[in-house]
Design a binder for these strands. Structure first.
Length: 607
DNA sequence: TTAGGGTTAG
């Protein structure tokens, strides 16, 4: 009794920031005498729980809550906890954090005190809604009531609030101070590091957990596997896989999906396929993991084969599946298949905003139908930075620089901040349109206006922009002043510009640098050899080809594909396997000679 | 009556 009295007394003395939800103000204004904590009769507890569990919607819980407000004997700690449990287990549109906080305030006003069940319910709601400020308030209450530190559920749920809100330092601090830790504490900390983009640290925590003699269960492993996936570290992934065998971890559908995703992100499609085929139970996420994972590995055709298999089995795709299919169509240039997905989306009245809308814009623009991409973009009710970037990049690819820049300026009007990829689209639009000054201005704006750090891709784009505009010495100077080491894309851009403007000496320097970075690739040699030929330096061209042969430089065959009536026709340099390859070659010869008569031979050679 | 899990775009 005295213990509870002391606790409530402390609650009265607490001060909260003025912007808070004013739990403390409610307590201060509380005129109702504080009740002693009573234990409800067991039959009442059972009937309350049965009632809450029978509720099928948040409205029904609210109706029960109304009944409690009217009936004084029902106003007990147990009943409020039960309502809070009901509220937090429903995913409400209005947000369960607010509902739970309101219930908590009401509870305090009725003179009831929180216990070790109340706080976890409240904190669960805060974590679900990413309500950091409210979580911090509850943190204070948990300290003042003495529940923090004495109850592992309170500690773990509080850690989770900080972890999901990205305040990993606070979560780690709580963990370090916890007098008792269980598997959930470790798992929550590991997940905190994963969610805040630190998979390396997450894995380190996992190994520390093993040293502390905890054995991971399937929930911990799903998170650890996702950390391996983020790291793309196959040997680490295999090590975790062995751990699962050694410790006989249950392989449920979550673990299976996490394994498939991990193996694909680590580049081992065969292992992923094997795990996938061995899964006794698959769900739509399993199929999505395969389709998206294969697409992320650039295996677009394989991704579509998996999708066909899914269709054959009659499994209904969801939004994520369609995004993966659209992405594969986009990268293969399969306009007809992409259109089919669009029809499917319309037919099933799937909301074409967000991920789906953005994937459609990207698919249409990559498949050459920029007008349709624009139509989808304009028809979207909600547009985000991805939507804007997709259309800007698409317009830039189609040479419509002015339109791309116009849409870019619309972004600031509607209050959407561009990111690094948007700027890449803007710079490439400027580059293709020969707008060197405007491109330079946007490049400078990156850090000055948008607070974005230019990456090596942006530098490569600028070199391309200056090079195309014929400002070769500016491009060279630009590379010299780069804060980071120039990569193959930067030197490749310079070499390309040298090829166009016939700058052989500078081209030789770019080639030398490129060969240092990528000795096994043939691109630089081919470009340089073409450059020598154009400058009538046949001997140098021959010498370079001979050198390539001696060094066994692999030749990447040029490849192009075209979709006709839903069938993809592929053509590789030097390969005559296509049934109509003779006719195609004959047509190309005629076409080339026709173009040459218009003086376009240089462009053909370059292409 | 309480806590921790997988796939999505430019």
């Amino acid at each position: 009794m005295s213990c509870y009295f002391n606790r409530t007394l402390v609650l009265h003395k607490m001060s909260f920031p003025s912007h808070s939800l004013s739990i403390s103000a409610t307590i201060a204004a509380n005129a109702v005498p504080l009740a002693t904590p009573e234990t409800d009769p067991v039959p009442l507890q059972f009937s309350v729980l049965r009632k809450i569990e029978s509720c099928r919607s948040i409205q029904e819980i609210k109706q029960f809550h109304a009944l409690v407000i009217k009936s004084r004997p029902l106003q007990t700690q147990f009943v409020y906890n039960a309502i809070m449990r009901g509220v937090t287990s429903f995913r409400t549109r209005c947000g369960s954090s607010l509902e739970a906080i309101l219930l908590y305030r009401e509870m305090l006003m009725k003179g009831l005190v929180p216990n070790d069940y109340t706080i976890p319910f409240l904190l669960k709601a805060c974590a679900q809604e990413y309500a950091l400020r409210e979580g911090e308030e509850v943190h204070v209450h948990a300290i003042k009531t003495g529940l923090l530190g004495s109850n592992v559920y309170v500690n773990n749920t509080l850690m989770r609030v900080y972890a999901v809100c990205g305040v990993i330092g606070a979560a780690q601090k709580l963990f370090d101070k916890s007098p008792q830790r269980d598997l959930v504490s470790w798992t929550t900390l590991i997940q905190g590091y994963v969610k805040t983009g630190s998979p390396r640290e997450a894995v380190e925590v996992f190994f520390r957990m093993c040293e502390a003699n905890f054995v991971a269960d399937e929930m911990t492993l799903v998170i650890v596997l996702s950390a391996c996936a983020m790291l793309g570290d196959l040997s680490l992934g295999k090590r975790i896989y062995r751990y699962m065998h050694e410790n006989e971890v249950k392989r449920d559908v979550f673990v299976g999906n996490a394994l498939v995703d991990m193996f694909l992100k680590c580049g081992d499609a065969d292992l992923a396929r094997w795990v996938f085929s061995e899964m006794p139970v698959k769900n739509v996420v399993s199929w999505n993991s395969m389709i998206l994972g294969l697409a992320q590995q650039g295996k677009f055709k394989e991704a579509l084969v998996v999708y066909e298999e899914m269709q054959t089995l009659g499994i209904r795709p969801d939004d994520v599946t369609l995004v993966g299919v659209l992405n594969s169509c986009a990268n293969l240039g399969l306009l007809e298949s992409g259109k089919w997905v669009h029809v499917y989306i319309d037919k099933h009245m799937i909301n074409a905003d967000g991920f789906i809308g953005n994937a459609l814009v990207d698919m249409y623009s990559k498949c050459g139908s920029i007008s349709q991409a624009l139509r989808v973009f304009q028809g979207m009710k909600r547009r985000d930075v991805y939507s804007y970037t997709a259309i800007i990049v698409g317009l830039a690819m189609h040479g419509e620089a002015a339109h791309a820049l116009e849409i870019f300026s619309d972004m600031s009007l509607v209050g959407i901040r561009p990111d690094e990829v948007t700027l890449l689209g803007v710079l490439s639009a400027c580059s293709h349109a020969g707008l060197a000054d405007e491109g330079q201005r946007h490049f400078e704006d990156m850090s000055r206006v948008y607070g974005l750090e230019p990456q090596t891709e942006h530098y490569a784009c600028m070199v391309d922009l200056l090079g195309r505009a014929g400002l070769l010495s500016d491009a060279e100077e630009f590379i010299k002043n780069m804060p980071t080491e120039p990569d193959a894309f930067v030197w490749g851009a310079l070499l390309g510009a040298c090829r166009v403007h016939g700058k052989v000496e500078l081209g030789e320097l770019a080639m030398k640098k490129l060969v240092e970075i990528e000795p096994e690739r043939d691109g630089a040699y081919i470009l340089m050899s073409n450059m020598y030929s154009s400058a009538d330096r046949w001997r140098d061209a021959l010498k370079l080809r001979k050198f390539m042969k001696e060094k066994h430089v692999k030749k990447t065959p040029g490849c192009s594909s075209i979709e006709l009536d839903g069938i993809v026709h592929e053509f590789r340099k030097g390969e005559k396997s296509h049934p109509k390859s003779k006719e195609v070659c004959r047509f190309l010869e005629e076409f080339t000679s026709h173009l040459k008569s218009f003086g376009q031979q240089d462009k053909i050679a370059f292409a």
